[in-house]
C-alpha cells in the first residue's frame, strides 16, 4: 500500500421498484365521483356515521359499507395548523394553513388546504367552502379542489362540529 485511501463508509444502492397502485372498490368510487365534481361518502349500516373518503368499511364497527352519500362542498374547520416549514420542491408557498375539515353531513374530517384567508384569523369552528379547479382540469384526484376558503357564516359551536346535517345539494360547481 503506497498511498492511504479513505475508508469506504457507504455505497449508493438505489432501489427502483414499480407498482401499479389500485385504490380499492370504495376509494375508486370516491375518485370517480370526484372526476364528476362530486364529493361522495359512505354510511355505516350499523352506526349510521358517514365517512369520506370511505375505505369500504366502518373502522369503528368493522362492517362493510356500501351506501353512498353525496355531500355538499361546504364544511367546518375542526382544527388546523399553519405550516411554515420550507420543503425543497414544495409547490405550496409557506406559510399556509392545513385544516381538518368536516363536510356538512359527514362525521369525519379530512385534511385540505385553507386559503383566501388571513392565516392569523383562522379558527376552530370556522365555516368554509371548496374552491374547485375549472372542470376541464378535473382528474381522479382530491386536487380537483384547489383549496377551501372561509364562508361568511357564524362559527359552529365546538361540540357540534362533526354532527351537522347535510346543508344543501351536492352539485358539481
Amino acid at each position: 500500500m503506497s498511498t492511504a485511501r479513505p475508508d469506504v463508509t457507504g455505497i449508493e444502492a438505489p432501489v427502483y421498484l414499480h407498482y401499479h397502485f389500485t385504490a380499492g372498490t370504495a376509494p375508486a368510487r370516491f375518485l370517480v365521483r370526484l372526476r364528476e365534481g362530486l364529493l361522495s361518502g359512505q354510511r355505516c349500516p350499523r352506526c349510521a356515521k358517514v365517512y369520506i373518503p370511505a375505505r369500504g368499511s366502518c373502522p369503528a364497527c368493522g362492517v362493510p359499507t356500501t351506501e353512498e352519500v353525496l355531500l355538499p362542498d361546504r364544511g367546518t374547520v375542526q382544527s388546523f395548523t399553519i405550516v411554515h416549514i420550507p420543503i425543497p420542491g414544495n409547490p405550496i408557498e409557506p406559510p399556509y394553513v392545513v385544516a381538518n375539515i368536516v363536510l356538512d353531513g359527514a362525521n369525519i374530517s379530512f385534511i385540505h388546504l385553507l386559503s383566501d384567508c388571513v392565516n392569523e384569523a383562522v379558527r376552530i369552528g370556522q365555516r368554509v367552502e371548496a374552491v374547485w379547479r375549472p372542470p376541464e382540469e378535473w382528474d381522479y384526484a382530491m386536487d380537483n379542489i384547489r383549496h377551501f376558503r372561509p364562508l361568511d357564516e357564524p362559527d359552529v359551536p365546538v361540540e357540534r362540529i362533526g354532527t351537522l346535517p347535510v346543508s344543501g345539494p351536492a352539485v358539481p360547481r
Binding site: 389500485t22 385504490a23 380499492g24 372498490t25 370504495a26 376509494p27 375508486a28 369500504g56 368499511s57 362493510p64
Partner: peptide, 14 residues
C-alpha cells in the same frame, strides 16, 4: 384481485 384494498381483502375472511 384488481381494485380491492387491504380492508376489502381482509374483511370477508374475518
Amino acid at each position: 384481485i384488481g381494485a380491492v384494498n387491504e380492508v376489502e381483502l381482509i374483511m370477508p375472511q374475518l
